[in-house]
């Protein structure tokens, strides 16, 4: 059996006194697309943000590349972050910078590559998300879907080992959404990327998911392969696959 690339044990997350995640224990395996499912507000984004220490977990353990990150110092964690990409729900592009400069940030900060190589990499990443024409635009000139694609280009700028995507298909037309799925699969196969995705799009799940994690009210309800998820008797998971969307 493969060794997990991310290992979460008894993770508890709280906002003030409110418990968002209760004793979550789950392993994410390398070179797999793991999809986190669950109804709105069940803690999917919180789980991702706790793994990445954007929120400090209340208790429990999170290991990335076999290293405990909850107690890790900032410098050590920065090394981990340089191997991780994150696509935020709303893109989170820096509005004061052009799309080119947004994507250049991780490349300039974390590599010693020459300017011309960086420029080529940015052009390629933008071309992969069909946004080559927007290279000199600023985020406020882009539509919601374009912003999301530009943010994906930034997330994959460094060819990260692990890519986190928070609702990548939301707000995109079916064709763009499908091409995004193709890109995710291509990245997974070509760069041996591990991908963790929060999505509600059933079509997208069928296309890309290897493994499903299902959360309900902060608890882990299901953890298994896509095939297992389709055949499970757990009512919430069954309903999801029957109705298609929460």
């Amino acid at each position: 059996m493969k060794k997990p690339i991310i290992s979460i044990k008894d993770l508890v997350a709280k906002y003030g006194d409110k418990t968002i995640l209760e004793n979550i224990s789950v392993d994410i395996y390398p070179q797999e697309v793991t999809v986190i499912l669950g109804s709105s507000g069940c803690g999917k984004t919180t789980l991702i943000k706790n793994i990445l220490k954007l929120y400090q977990p209340f208790s429990g353990s999170v290991k990335i590349f076999d290293k405990e990150v909850t107690s890790m110092d900032e410098q050590e964690f920065d090394d981990i972050l340089s191997k991780v990409g994150m696509l935020f729900q709303n893109g989170a592009l820096l509005n004061s910078l052009s799309i080119f400069d947004n994507i250049a940030i991780p490349l300039e900060q974390h590599t010693k590559l020459s300017k011309s190589v960086i420029e080529k990499m940015i052009k390629v990443k933008l071309d992969l998300v069909n946004l080559g024409h927007a290279i000199n635009m600023v985020p406020s000139e882009l539509s919601g879907g374009m912003k999301k694609r530009a943010a994906l280009a930034r997330a994959i700028a460094l060819d990260p080992d692990i890519l986190f995507c928070d609702e990548p298909s939301a707000g995109l037309d079916p064709l763009t959404s499908a091409s995004l799925d193709d890109l995710i699969l291509k990245l997974k196969n070509l760069l041996n990327m591990t991908i963790l995705i929060v999505t509600h799009e059933l079509a997208s799940i069928y296309r890309i998911a290897d493994r499903i994690i299902f959360l309900d009210n902060g608890r882990l309800l299901f953890n298994g392969t896509l095939e297992e998820a389709k055949q499970t008797d757990i009512p919430e998971v069954k309903t999801f696959f029957e109705i298609g969307k929460f």
Binding site: T111, L113, S116, V117, I118, M121, V124, D159, L191
Partner: peptide, 11 residues
Amino acid sequence: IDSAGIAFIDE
């Protein structure tokens, strides 16, 4: 090889 490697080849 990754995208930086390909960009280097193009360069």
